[in-house]
Design a protein around this nucleic acid. Structure first.
Ligand SMILES: [Mn+2]
Ligand SMILES: [Mn+2]
Ligand SMILES: [Zn+2]
Ligand SMILES: [Zn+2]
Lengths: 142, 142
DNA sequence: ATTTAAATTTGTAATGATTACAATTTAATA
DNA sequence: TATTAAATTGTAATCATTACAAATTTAAAT
């Protein structure tokens, strides 16, 4: 068993654990989301996976992402209107979008000791935080 | 001078202050955004203002909002993909979107004393925070 | 192993919000 | 008033997402 196949097995098990049958397409899509940290959109995901699965349909990417989101193993990032991006890291973290290069960076946050938590009778299921500005790299190149 | 006209004059001055020529359409659109707290989308804004300006075009609503955003007197809310909403309150505050009734509520936040502020060399221009869950009202009616 | 049924994937068409653009109208200037 | 610029309008184009039915693959039953 090669290292690659082993990794795929890991992903398959992970998907199974969340009630998703691990088809080849689903494994490849989730594997890509896991390894990349760029928070890709559907088009980027499709263009990447279609190299490995030439028969892949964009509809499958949409369907697959929908089921991932439904099961809670992928998060949707909606910083820009008309630019939905996806993140396989569902742990609590913030996003920084650079207005110059478009990159989305992760950063750690800590809501725990914040008065934000108490919304008086409201049930909070998801917390999203994002900043916008210019990244270190782009500031340097000016 | 009626009270209504007086309020419109206020808005006109405000727009002028931000370098926007206060046309009738622009005044009505901004006035509506100011008075409502529902964070409406383009369609809701259009349907409301067209009652007063029957010749209004949806393109004008888009154009007007774009210039408002550019001048910084209106904020874009992109909580849901394919549901862009607008807010004339540009002060720092968070949004809570109810997954049941769809309403968007405002809430106060305080980033000032947060370690979040330091992103090490990144220039932060905008900070956005939103929660999702079920509002008090919807929880009650269950 | 064959047949049958269910699940998944695929391709195409429909939808709907946003944008592009040219024509019309309105406001400002000479 | 005539000329020019700005704003508004209506229509068409774009593009991401969704709907849907056909084709393929997988699983279950015989
Ligand atoms: Mn992330
Ligand atoms: Mn608000
Ligand atoms: Zn950058
Ligand atoms: Zn509610």
């Amino acid at each position: 068993m090669t290292l690659k196949e082993y990794k795929e097995q890991d992903i398959a098990d992970y998907l199974k654990k969340y009630g998703i049958k691990p088809s080849y397409q689903r494994i490849k899509i989730f594997e890509y989301l896991r390894k990349t940290k760029s928070h890709p959109n559907v088009d980027v995901i499709f263009k990447e996976i279609v190299k490995v699965i030439p028969t892949l349909s964009k509809t499958t990417v949409y369907n697959t992402l929908s089921s991932f989101i439904e099961k809670g193993i992928v998060a949707v990032i909606t910083i820009e209107e008309n630019e939905t991006r996806y993140d396989a890291d569902t742990s609590m973290h913030g996003h920084f979008k650079c207005k110059s290069c478009g990159k989305i960076y992760d950063f750690d946050i800590n809501f725990s000791r914040d008065d934000i938590d108490d919304l008086g009778g409201f049930e909070v299921d998801e917390k999203h935080l994002y900043f916008k500005g210019n990244c270190k790299n782009c500031l340097k190149n000016k």
